[in-house]
C-alpha cells in the first residue's frame, strides 16, 4: 500500500513537471503581459518600458524565464515556484499572487465542498432509486432530468437559478437568498446565527448551480454500477437465499456499487474546476474562478501559470486519492 502510494507519487511528479512546461509555454508564448502598459496614453517612455520588462523578466529568453519561474535562481527573490514564490504580478505590488491565491482558495473551498457533498448525496439517492426501479417512469424521469442538467450551459442554468431565488425572496417577502458575493459586507457585528444565515443565503444558489452538472453525471454512474451489482451473481445468490430485498440492497449491493462513484467523483475535480470559473462569475464570488478570469484578462502571465499549476496539482492529487481509495474500498483489488 505505502509502496504503491510512493510509486504513484513518483510518477505524478514528472507528469506535473511536464505539465509545468506545457503551462508555461502556453501562457508565455500566447500573450504580452505589458500590453496594457504599452497601450497607455501618453505612451510610457523607453526607460519605463525597459524597467517594466526587467521587473517581469521579459528581457530574458523563454527557457531562462521558465528556469526562473520554477527555481527562482537568478531572479529578484520574487519568483521561483520551488521556493514558494509565484512571480511578480503585472497588476503591481498591491497584488501578491501567492496571497491572493490563498485567500481565493478559502472562498472557493466553501462553495466546492458544499457542492460536492450535495451532488454526491443526490447522485447516490437518484442513482440507486433509478437502478432499483429500472425502466419505471421514475427512472425515465430521473434520467431525463440528469440528461437535461448535462445539456445546459452552466451560465444559462445559473441565470435561471438566480431568478428562481429572487422569485422566492419576492413571494415570501424574506431576503434569504443573496445573488452576489460570499458574504455581506458587515459581518463583524453579527451574531453567530445571523452570520450562519448570511453565509447560507449566499451559498445556496451558487451551490445548486455548481452541483447540477456533477450530480447529473455521477447519478448516471451510480445507476450503472448499481445495476451491475444488482445483476451480479452474489446478489442473486443472496436473493435466492431469501434475504429480504431491503437488506440485499443496503448491505450487499449499495456498498459495492459506491466504489466506482468514489473514483469518478474524485476525478470529477476537473469538471468542478470548470464549473467554479463560471459559477463564481455569475455570482461574483471572489474565489479561484474569479482570480483566473481576471488574471487572463489582465495578461497576468505569472498569475495564470500559478493558477494552472495549482489546478493541475489538485487534479493529480485527486486521481491519486481516487486510486488509493479504490484499493481501500474494494477488497478485490490488491496492489502489487
Amino acid at each position: 500500500m505505502l509502496v504503491y502510494t510512493a510509486r504513484r507519487l513518483a510518477v505524478a511528479i514528472p507528469v506535473l513537471l511536464a505539465a509545468s512546461v506545457l503551462v508555461f509555454l502556453m501562457v508565455d508564448l500566447s500573450g504580452d503581459p505589458l500590453a496594457d502598459l504599452r497601450l497607455q496614453q501618453p505612451p510610457p517612455s523607453e526607460e519605463v518600458m525597459a524597467a517594466a520588462e526587467a521587473r517581469y523578466y521579459l528581457d530574458r529568453s523563454t527557457p531562462e524565464r521558465y528556469w526562473l519561474w520554477m527555481t527562482g535562481i537568478g531572479g529578484n527573490g520574487d519568483i521561483g515556484l520551488l521556493q514558494g514564490e509565484f512571480g511578480p504580478s503585472v497588476r503591481g505590488g498591491a497584488f501578491d499572487i501567492g496571497e491572493q491565491l490563498a485567500s481565493s482558495i478559502t472562498v472557493t473551498l466553501r462553495l466546492v465542498t458544499a457542492a460536492i457533498i450535495a451532488a454526491l448525496g443526490l447522485a447516490i439517492l437518484s442513482g440507486v432509486v433509478s437502478a432499483m426501479r429500472q425502466y419505471s417512469k421514475l427512472d425515465y424521469t430521473l434520467t431525463f432530468i440528469g440528461f437535461l442538467a448535462l445539456a445546459m450551459p452552466t451560465f444559462w442554468l445559473g441565470a435561471l437559478i438566480k431568478e428562481g431565488g429572487l422569485w422566492f425572496n419576492q413571494t415570501t417577502g424574506t431576503g434569504f437568498f443573496y445573488t452576489i458575493g460570499a458574504n455581506s459586507a458587515r459581518v463583524s457585528n453579527m451574531t453567530n446565527w445571523e452570520y450562519f444565515l448570511d453565509s447560507a443565503g449566499h451559498l445556496v444558489l451558487p451551490t445548486v448551480t455548481l452541483m447540477l452538472t456533477s450530480f447529473a453525471s455521477w447519478s448516471r454512474y451510480q445507476r450503472t454500477s448499481m445495476l451491475e451489482v444488482l445483476n451480479s451473481d452474489y446478489v442473486r445468490l443472496a436473493r435466492a437465499k431469501g434475504v429480504p430485498n431491503r437488506v440485499v440492497v443496503r448491505r450487499h449491493a449499495l456498498r459495492t456499487a459506491l466504489i466506482p462513484l468514489v473514483t469518478v467523483a474524485t476525478i470529477g475535480v476537473v469538471g468542478i474546476i470548470e464549473g467554479v470559473v463560471i459559477t463564481e462569475t455569475i455570482f461574483q464570488w471572489r474565489g479561484l474562478g474569479y482570480f483566473f478570469i481576471e488574471a487572463v484578462k489582465t495578461n497576468d502571465a505569472f498569475a495564470v501559470m500559478s493558477w494552472l499549476m495549482l489546478s493541475g496539482t489538485l487534479v493529480v492529487l485527486a486521481s491519486l486519492v481516487a486510486d488509493i481509495l479504490y484499493g481501500v474500498l474494494d477488497p478485490r483489488i490488491r496492489y502489487e
Binding site: 431576503g175 462569475t281 461574483q284 474569479y290
Partner: peptide, 22 residues
C-alpha cells in the same frame, strides 16, 4: 458607511439591486 463592491458581471447588477444587495 459606503461599501464599494467590485462586480464585473453586468448581468448580476439589476437582480442584486432588486434584491436589496446593492
Amino acid at each position: 458607511e459606503i461599501i464599494l463592491e467590485v462586480n464585473t458581471e453586468e448581468g448580476s447588477w439589476v437582480p442584486a439591486l432588486t434584491n436589496g444587495e446593492v
